[in-house]
């Protein structure tokens, strides 16, 4: 198992040969976005999103705890704004 993305240890991506293997590895979480972009010679994250779209895949989901923390912080703002829009503010 690898220790870090930039370390000298072996990462799962080092055994991947095809584009599909790399994209599947990214979707499964064993390959980071930057590793996938480097291996596929992509310049931007947008290119990676497009590559996933080409094979009918959505970007991987973030961890549930992270999603809940983000939603908890943003939902009151969103609800308030939607209410203001509904009230014609």
């Amino acid at each position: 198992m690898g220790r870090s993305e930039k370390g000298s240890s072996i990462r799962p991506i080092h055994g991947m040969v095809t584009v599909r293997q790399i994209l599947d590895g990214f979707l499964a979480g064993s390959v980071t976005d930057h590793e996938a972009m480097d291996a596929l010679h992509m310049e931007t994250y947008a290119d990676l999103i497009n590559a996933l779209a080409d094979i009918g895949e959505a970007p991987p989901l973030p961890p549930k705890a992270e999603v809940e923390a983000e939603v908890e912080a943003a939902l009151p703002l969103i609800r308030k704004r939607l209410q203001e829009v509904a009230d014609g503010a």
Partner: peptide, 10 residues
């Protein structure tokens, strides 16, 4: 900061 998925959940 809100990811696309968090945005959809919200």
């Amino acid at each position: 900061k809100l990811s696309t998925w968090s945005f959809l959940i919200a």
